Deep mutational scan, measured.
Amino acid sequence: DTINITLPDGKTLTLTVTPEFTVKELAEEIARRLGLSPEDIKDTHNGKTLDPSLTLAEYGITPGSTITLEIK
């Protein structure tokens, strides 16, 4: 299953994830792909900052969802 990550420059990154991924694991994968530190990444969905300890499923993030990435 894939989700879309909207980057600060407007580009989109597509990642393969499972509903059990935590937001922290997602940030780590994004950081790895972009050459950043996971601590520099802030993920938001529907205007809410995502708690790193919760899973994508707990936020109702499903395949095809879009998450907005902010760099701290």
Rank of each mutant, 00 (worst) to 15 (best):
Gly60Tyr: 02
Ser65Pro: 01
Val23Cys: 06
Thr6Leu: 15
Pro8Glu: 08
Leu34Asn: 01
Lys11Val: 11
Lys11Pro: 06
Ser53Ile: 04
Ala27Gly: 09
Leu7Asp: 02
Asp51Leu: 04
Pro38Ile: 15
Thr49Ile: 13
Arg32Ala: 10
Asp43Arg: 07
Arg32Met: 09
Leu26Asp: 00
Lys72Ala: 13
Arg33Phe: 11
Leu56Cys: 04
Pro19Glu: 06
Gly10Tyr: 04
Asn46Thr: 15
Thr62His: 13
Asp43Pro: 15
Thr16Leu: 11
Leu54Met: 14
Leu50Pro: 06
His45Arg: 05
Ala31Gln: 05
Thr12Glu: 06
Pro52Trp: 14
Asp51Gln: 04
Leu15Thr: 01
Thr55Trp: 01
Asn4Gln: 08
Glu58Leu: 02
Pro19Thr: 06
Ala57Val: 12
Asn4Ala: 08
Glu28Lys: 05
Ile71Arg: 03
Thr6Glu: 13
Leu7Met: 10
Val17Tyr: 13
Leu50Glu: 03
Leu69Val: 14
Pro52Lys: 07
Arg33Asn: 07
Lys42Ala: 12
Thr18Ile: 04
Asp1Cys: 15
Glu70Arg: 03
Lys24Phe: 08
Thr66Glu: 08
Leu69Ala: 06
Glu29Ile: 09
Ile41Phe: 11
Ser53Tyr: 07
Glu58Asp: 11
Ala27Ile: 15
Asp43Lys: 14
Leu15Cys: 05
Thr6Asp: 08
Asp43Ser: 15
Gly10Arg: 03
Pro52Arg: 05
Leu13Lys: 00
Gly10Gln: 04
Ala27Tyr: 15
Leu13Pro: 00
Gly60Gln: 03
Arg33Asp: 03
Gly10Cys: 08
Thr22Leu: 04
Thr49Gln: 11
Gly35Asn: 10
Glu39Leu: 15
Asn4Leu: 11
Thr62Ile: 13
Gly10Asp: 03
Asp1Gly: 14
Thr44Cys: 12
Lys24Ala: 13
Val23Phe: 15
Ser53Met: 11
Ala31Gly: 07
Thr2Pro: 04
Leu50Gln: 03
Arg32Trp: 10
Gly47Ser: 03
Thr12Asp: 03
Thr49Cys: 13
Thr66Phe: 07
Ser53Leu: 10
Ile3Ala: 01
Thr14Trp: 07
Ile5Phe: 05
Glu25Leu: 06
Leu50Cys: 15
Ile67Glu: 01
Pro38Val: 15
Pro38Cys: 12
Leu13Val: 09
Asp40Lys: 09
Ser65Phe: 06
Ser65Arg: 02
Leu15Ala: 02
Lys24Thr: 04
Thr16Cys: 09
Asp43Leu: 15
Asp51Cys: 06
Glu39Asp: 11
Asp51Thr: 03
Thr66Met: 06
Asp1Trp: 13
Thr22Glu: 00
Ser37Gln: 12
Glu25Val: 03
Thr12Phe: 10
Arg33Gln: 13
Lys11Gln: 13
Leu69Phe: 06
Asp1Ser: 14
Asp40His: 11
Lys42Glu: 11
Thr12Lys: 09
Gly10Phe: 04
Asn46Pro: 07
Thr62Met: 12
Thr2Ile: 10
Leu13Phe: 14
Pro63Asn: 10
Lys72Gly: 12
Thr2Tyr: 12
Thr62Asn: 08
